[in-house]
Design a protein around this nucleic acid. Sequence first.
DNA 1: GACCCGGAAGTAGT
DNA 2: GACTACTTCCGGGT
Length: 472
Amino acid sequence: MKVVSLQLPSGPSMERLPLPFSPTELLWRYPLPWAPPPPSPLGDAKAQLPAGLPPEPRLWTREDVSVFLKWCEREFDLPNFDMDLFQMNGKALCLLTKTDLGERCPGAGDVLHNVLQMLVRDAALLGRMPSSPVTPTARAAPYPPSPHSHPPTPTWAVDGFHHFHSAAAAAAQPNSVTLSPAPSVDSSGSPQRGETMGYAPSYAPSTPAVVQTTSSGSNHSDSDEEAQFTPQPRSPKDIPMTNSVSQNHQTQQHSHYRTQHREFFPSDMPESNTNGRLLWDFLQQLLNDPTQRYTNYIAWKNRETGVFKIVDPAGLAKLWGIQKNHLSMNYDKMSRALRYYYRVNILRKVQGERHCYQFLRNPIELKNIKNISLLRQQMSPTRVAPQPVVKTEMKEERCDEDAVDEDMPTDLSMAASEPWRKRARSDPVSAPTPHEKHRISALIGENMLMKREPDYTPEHYALNLKSEKCEQ
DNA sequence: GACCCGGAAGTAGT
DNA sequence: GACTACTTCCGGGT
């Protein structure tokens, strides 16, 4: 067995950087934090890479990965890899940590990892790769620069990133991440080459799962919670291993999930102007995942009307916490954030149904709003009428609330908290004083009559875009 | 007890 | 420093 003594320079705190900046992501963001780079010990090996194998590992297809692994077996005299554990593209492969790789191919993880790191680094050196792991070319997509210009897709449920993907799809494809075992309902794995639902897989969020807890020592004091967070497979289909499976295999699964998690909504995600950093966007992206990989966490109840259900509140909160690097996130906290969206009419609660919410705004509309607080300028003074899909039993429940919310403020910021809005239930008589009313009016402004009308219907969501376009 | 609500203060990023 | 979008904590209602 050849000895590959690759001394990868260890970047500054690379492995200790908390999510969402995984070591791998850091590598992408800051490809060469340790300049000047040492000469690549892989120089020879690279020259011997199988013909047709792109020098940039992150551009590899699954087939390329297979070819590469086979090549590694031969070249470095490694034990045969279990190819089932490497059903992924190059980008996903590069996301695997040394530990991950070691779990998948005991005894060869270091070698594989170092080879990959070298290839990645050298590719970055050559400027072959963009700074982001995610759909770099999508930036050229015709994302409307103006908050009032909208892409042409009229159906909001499809979500804005549909067309953005479409535009960038072809060029972005090589950078999509496909991981295996595929968490998708699609047993064939994550979408490849843009075949699913007409979406291009330029952005393929990985299955949310357990965060890295052991390898790389990357996380901090919240690791206790992290350790408790176990992957929640969507269906029996998604559990390729059963209890009878060896611990080793489970570890590999675990590792797999960890790896996926590190890729969760990389911050350079081009599909929106918020990159999943905003909660509504995060939810939208989970909901609109082309392969429906997150339906075990959150799922549409009625996509047309924006009604969705949080299937696994705790799990979803964990995901959100990981996304925001608030690892102590729980549903209580996340739901508080959701409740702030009530104010700006981004969300409403579907009364009478647990964990059910409704988007009140077209995601494209939201994505074109650079600043949520701008919504205060778009607020209709009247609350949205209950949507038809909401269960009838809720209607009574809504009554008092609607009355209370009549002059609902529109500012999401804490600076504009709601002195006039006493607790609806505990203090139903507290109404805005004249002075407060005045302030509300000032907040609402004049020119911001929303497209939503008092008799707002779900159809408005779909039509909202259209009408806005026409107005322009 | 879980869910839901919203006030209040704090925080990280811009 | 102002602002945003939460996060955290909490008391209270369902």
